[in-house]
């Protein structure tokens, strides 16, 4: 190299997710959840898909069998936390993102100051209503669940494939409205199956149809978490 002033240009391999900082916080949360024996589920769905309704139904279904805590992510307000407490949640914390379109791991970490994990078997995290932004942000969950409703239309897997592809279960809500909304079920199922082999639960949070199967599946996950070291 000529001259003492010259600077060298060098290429440094990184090969990490751009969200590595969030992922590290999520990993530390995952260890905390495991240590406390709490099974954690991140519920992702559009506004109006029925995330809070599904959580309320799940709590009612699991009453006496699992102590359920809820983190309610929302832009603002505390309506949802009140609703799930009414449904019998053991504990509920509202996380207001102040406009941010998704929850991140540090918001969950903050919220855990207000909740005693030792008193819970299952922690349901309701993400901000959105099928896009929340997909990238690991919250330390055991499972990601994608919730869509028949009223939204059968094209959701085709429009938002990545959330279906990364989910551990897909829940289709409002099946009681299928006939009214022109929802093409075979088309929906075909496209979901092109993306994932994850279980598909078809429910109506209004009538309660299908909630038993969903609840039983969730409970099996919970029991596994509680028996593993």
């Amino acid at each position: 190299m000529s001259g003492g002033e010259a600077h060298r240009v060098k290429v440094v391999k990184v090969l990490q997710s751009a969200l590595a900082g969030n992922d590290a916080v999520a990993e530390s949360l995952r260890r905390r959840f495991r240590a406390a024996g709490v099974f954690v589920v991140n519920v992702i769905g559009s506004p109006g898909a029925g995330k809070t309704s599904l959580i309320a139904r799940t709590i009612e279904r699991l009453r006496g069998r699992a102590r359920v805590g809820v983190l309610e992510g929302d832009i603002a307000g505390s309506l949802d936390a009140e609703r799930v407490l009414e449904a019998g949640a053991h504990d509920a914390v509202q996380i207001n993102t102040g406009g941010q379109c998704h929850l991140d791991a540090s918001m969950v970490e903050q919220a855990l100051h207000q909740i005693n994990l030792e008193n819970l078997d299952l922690l349901l995290i309701e993400n901000v209503g959105n099928l896009i932004c929340p997909t990238h942000w690991d919250l330390g969950e055991d499972l990601t669940v994608c919730l869509v409703s028949a009223a939204e239309g059968h094209d959701k897997p085709r429009k938002y494939p990545e959330i279906f592809a990364k989910s551990d279960a897909v829940v289709l809500n409002k099946i009681d409205l299928m006939g009214l909304s022109g929802f093409d079920r075979p088309e929906f199922v075909r496209h979901v199956r092109a993306l994932t082999e994850a279980p598909l639960f078809e429910v109506s949070c209004r009538t309660g149809e299908g909630v038993a199967e969903w609840g039983a599946w969730l409970l099996r996950g919970c029991e596994k978490a509680n028996t593993s070291p």
Binding site: V14, Q16, L19, E162, A194
Partner: peptide
Amino acid sequence: DWRCPGCGRLGKLVDAGDELRVEDIEVEV
């Protein structure tokens, strides 16, 4: 439209194409 260009059947996902990865950085040292 996820049909195979060869036979028109719907295939199976291999890669969701949702990467958000830093490959490398070019720096001055």
